[in-house]
Design a binder for these strands. Structure first.
Lengths: 110, 110
DNA sequence: CCGATTTGTTCTATAATGTAGAGTAAATCC
DNA sequence: GGATTTACTCTACATTATAGAACAAATCGG
């Protein structure tokens, strides 16, 4: 990592999805949540790779769930936001807001 | 790029710095603006590499300025936000806000 | 006018993040 | 137990992020 804990846009979205759906959120529901709210499509690979990274950095924690009694209901990995993740989210948001403040994001003339 | 025009956090900050300082902003002032507002340090390499990328994608436009009559006052590259950049900024912000909406970003218990 | 100094940009190398989709695993249904 | 469904892992590669040295162009002082 750099000097500071910065967050790519996708990491930011995934972290927020975890926060929204905790403590039950897992791969498929997280993916659906992001797609539904942002309208962008999320590939499975991108999602799980990012979840792994977030977990390694200690920003989310995962816990194996029980299988559910339904077709294809194999055990899921449930995610929750860790304290460090919560902090990093707040910092990233603060940085963006500090830069957005008072900006009128229209293209320049000339 | 992916399916959609997504924005890394740093790209997002740089684009906003350009929007803030246009039409006069250039390397050094953009760098100072980001450091002052966000408190994070910005290396020169990171900044110029990102500006190049944003320019190649048509999100900012650059124009060579005149040298200014002061010690070390060599010609600068002035940046402005392009229409596409403005659009991408708005979209990225909208995605983040859609995910932030109603979120209480506290760590989960358990 | 030339070497030192100052400001600004480019180049080089490497690490971290983002992406897509095939592959594997574990459950239920018949 | 084979087909089907849901979930997660793996592989390979593209893009973005980072640091700092190198290079360029201006003024200043003598």
């Amino acid at each position: 990592m750099s000097e500071r804990d910065s967050l790519g846009e996708f990491e930011h979205l995934v972290l927020l999805a975890v926060a929204r759906l905790q403590p039950e959120g897992y791969g498929t529901t997280l993916r659906r949540e992001i797609e539904a709210r942002t309208g962008r499509s999320v590939s499975v690979g991108a999602l799980y790779a990012t979840l792994d990274r977030l977990e390694r950095k200690g920003w989310v924690s995962a816990e194996a769930g029980e299988p559910t009694p339904e077709r294809g209901g194999r055990a899921k990995r449930h995610y929750q936001l860790a304290a460090a993740g919560s902090r990093v989210l707040a910092e990233s948001r603060a940085r963006l807001e500090a830069m957005w403040e008072g900006v009128d994001a229209r293209p320049g003339r000339a």
